[in-house]
């Protein structure tokens, strides 16, 4: 009886959250994003899109076998993605907390590339809050400019929204000056309705310029145009209602330049020009970078280059 009442209370609060932020029709949104993929991006528009995408990459390695040496090589790749010196550096490198100090050593203090660290018991988030906060504190102390946290999906799915939000607040406070990215892990939320609700839950306690992020890259389904669009529309609605501009990071599954351009088209046509920069939009990716470079080189020379003409960065996602 008691548990029945509690469940009823939880479903009422979910209903309230959905009523407040609105629902998403999955057929409709997938139809919408399919139109982004029919945009034809050619010539100068393509080059602009590719270069902008390079500057938006959070070059990532998140593996148990990461070593200081591999992180250093990732940092060099982020600073100088290609032999062509006109290719800009990526936005950031993204590593595990234990690798932050190695990344800081490799990049130095005034690097154009920021250091992002996943934290909060990434990717599951299944650790006591105190442990997760301690991890954030350590990453920031070691020099992380940005913290990628995971939300407590267990609590979200159990209907404990207040707890999810309070934990995000606690991580935000622990971040200090570091930018916070909140990973919703959309594939574990499963429905577009819940992705939208979770986006609002997070945005309401974030600071301007903080991010919401799709995925850890550690599950089978990661960023798609569909869940990206749900989150972009949530950001748009939140911005128009409050004036607070939240940034967005799709992560995982974006491997080709063509995909990246589709995501940028979605940004351009949903949030407009103010989000077409790496303060407001990022790609969590690794394999993507070399495909962007390959396409840029193709635009420059008119021919595709062999894969080995581009230096390896990291294998992840």
């Amino acid at each position: 009886m008691v548990s029945g009442l509690m469940n009823a209370g939880q479903s009422v609060s979910l209903r309230r959250l959905f009523d407040d932020v609105g629902t998403v029709d999955s057929v409709g949104i997938e139809e919408r994003v399919a139109k982004f993929t029919t945009r034809s991006i050619k010539k100068t528009a393509k080059v602009w899109g590719l270069r902008t995408a390079v500057t938006m990459v959070d070059l990532t390695t998140l593996e148990g076998k990461d070593t200081p040496g591999k992180v250093a090589s990732l940092c060099r790749k982020a600073l100088h993605p290609a032999d062509d010196p006109t290719v800009p550096p990526t936005a950031a490198v993204c590593v595990y907390p234990a690798m932050v100090r190695h990344a800081r050593r490799a990049l130095g203090l005034n690097a154009p590339v920021r250091i992002a660290s996943v934290a909060t018991a990434f990717p599951s988030g299944q650790a006591p809050l105190a442990t997760r906060l301690a991890e954030v504190r350590a990453a920031v102390a070691d020099g992380a400019d940005e913290v990628d946290m995971v939300i407590n999906r267990g609590a979200f799915l159990a209907g404990e929204y207040g707890r999810v939000q309070d934990e995000i607040s606690a991580v935000r406070d622990t971040c200090g000056a570091a930018t916070l990215k909140v990973i919703l892990e959309v594939s574990e939320l499963e429905t577009y309705d819940k992705i939208r609700a979770a986006s609002f839950l997070a945005m309401r306690v974030l600071r301007p310029g903080d991010f919401i992020k799709t995925s850890t890259g550690k599950t089978s389904l990661n960023a798609t145009l569909g869940n990206n669009q749900v989150m972009l529309e949530a950001i748009r609605d939140f911005y128009l209602a409050t004036g607070v501009a939240i940034a967005m990071k799709p992560a995982g599954g974006i491997r080709t330049a063509k995909q990246a351009l589709h995501f940028l088209v979605a940004v351009k046509e949903t949030l407009g020009d103010a989000w077409l920069n790496n303060r407001r939009y990022r790609f969590g990716a690794s394999a993507l970078l070399n495909d962007l470079l390959r396409q840029l080189e193709k635009e420059r020379t008119g021919a595709y280059q062999a894969p080995y003409s581009f230096s390896e960065s990291a294998e992840s996602y």
């Binding site: 945009r39 050619k42 010539k43 528009a45 393509k46 902008t52 911005y239 407009g272 020009d273 077409l276």
Partner: peptide
């Protein structure tokens, strides 16, 4: 307001 300008015009 959102800005739908010509930062990234399509060719």
């Amino acid at each position: 307001e959102l800005i739908f300008g010509d930062l990234w015009p399509y060719d």
